[in-house]
Computed example of a mutant assay.
Amino acid sequence: MLKINLYCTTILILAANFSYGQKVKATQPDFTAPTTIKGYQLVWNDEFNEKGKPNPAFWISENGFKRNNELQWYQEENAKCKDGVLTIMANREKFDNPNFDASSKDWRLNRKFVNYTSASINTKGIKSWKYGRFETRAKIDSTKGSWPAIWTLGNVGQWPANGEIDIMEFYIKDMKQSILANAAWLGGNLKPKWNSKVKALTYFLEKDPKWLDKFHVWRMDWDEEAIKIYIDDELINEISTAKTLNPDGTNPFQQEHYFLLNLAIGGINGGNPKDSKFPITYQVDYVRVYQKNK
């Protein structure tokens, strides 16, 4: 009996090791433990392995119309976790704008109806970081009107003086569906100053026609000297923080930033979704934050 148990145990261990050693399919969520990175420690992560709404100990949800003349009404119920993935879903649905004010000049208030819904979650007031390696594995939807993003905002100051880092944005740029890696701060004209790199979606599709069917790892390496943004280990943009000063001399990238994930629809960049098929989905497999060992 002992020999049988030892044999069975050995087989189970070998099977587990074989399974663990298998390469994760690019089209599937990654259930393996976070990677150990030499010189870094994992300080925060969400693998989205629970079921239901995102963990309220980690994330808060935005509600209503928010920015950029976007078409969607943000609501908590459009972000759900299942099978190891956070899915942010945009729907075409119509209902009265509960904040409607016909006399207002604010577009958030003078829209009589909501025609689209989606979700936006962030760690503001819960968790923020100064410097580190930020990794997000996600799959985007290229349907016209889709504007997904992975980004950070500084804790102190009003936008853009607080600083914005777009680890990933997808929208129409120069008439082309594009992926962008950006940073913004306050310029001398008191308007946002941008350092932006744009890669047309065709750049990725030419290398892999099934690129949109797969999860990809968007990474930011941020330290006192630079912000470097990667897609699947390919450097997309490098921003020197010596050049990111606000007019008052403050540097918004030398402070803690909080994390945001959202799927916008339309607005100033997303494109017209009138003829698009809904729902539009944005899937996030995990978010991991590493910082250098002290």
Results as ranks from 00 to 15, higher is better:
residue 148 P to T: 01
residue 133 R to K: 15
residue 125 G to Y: 05
residue 112 K to I: 04
residue 119 A to N: 10
residue 113 F to T: 14
residue 151 W to L: 01
residue 153 L to C: 13
residue 130 K to A: 09
residue 112 K to R: 13
residue 163 G to H: 00
residue 118 S to Y: 11
residue 167 I to E: 03
residue 126 I to S: 11
residue 109 L to W: 05
residue 154 G to P: 09
residue 162 N to H: 11
residue 120 S to Q: 09
residue 136 T to Q: 12
residue 160 P to E: 01
residue 120 S to M: 11
residue 152 T to H: 08
residue 122 N to Q: 12
residue 124 K to Y: 12
residue 128 S to H: 13
residue 169 E to L: 10
residue 137 R to Q: 09
residue 132 G to K: 06
residue 121 I to E: 04
residue 125 G to L: 01
residue 137 R to P: 08
residue 114 V to A: 06
residue 169 E to W: 09
residue 160 P to W: 01
residue 130 K to R: 13
residue 150 I to T: 00
residue 160 P to F: 00
residue 151 W to I: 02
residue 129 W to N: 02
residue 154 G to L: 04
residue 128 S to V: 08
residue 138 A to S: 15
residue 141 D to V: 01
residue 146 S to I: 05
residue 158 Q to L: 11
residue 131 Y to F: 15
residue 164 E to Y: 00
residue 161 A to N: 01
residue 115 N to V: 01
residue 147 W to E: 10
residue 164 E to Q: 04
residue 158 Q to W: 00
residue 136 T to G: 12
residue 154 G to V: 05
residue 169 E to Q: 13
residue 161 A to Y: 02
residue 142 S to W: 04
residue 169 E to G: 10
residue 124 K to Q: 14
residue 159 W to A: 00
residue 110 N to L: 14
residue 169 E to F: 06
residue 125 G to P: 07
residue 121 I to F: 11
residue 112 K to Q: 13
residue 154 G to Y: 04
residue 168 M to R: 08
residue 142 S to A: 15
residue 137 R to A: 09
residue 157 G to M: 07
residue 122 N to K: 12
residue 144 K to L: 14
residue 168 M to Q: 10
residue 130 K to S: 00
residue 138 A to M: 15
residue 132 G to L: 03
residue 125 G to D: 11
residue 158 Q to D: 14
residue 135 E to R: 15
residue 156 V to M: 05
residue 130 K to W: 02
residue 164 E to G: 09
residue 170 F to K: 03
residue 145 G to P: 07
residue 135 E to L: 14
residue 165 I to E: 01
residue 125 G to M: 06
residue 155 N to M: 12
residue 165 I to W: 00
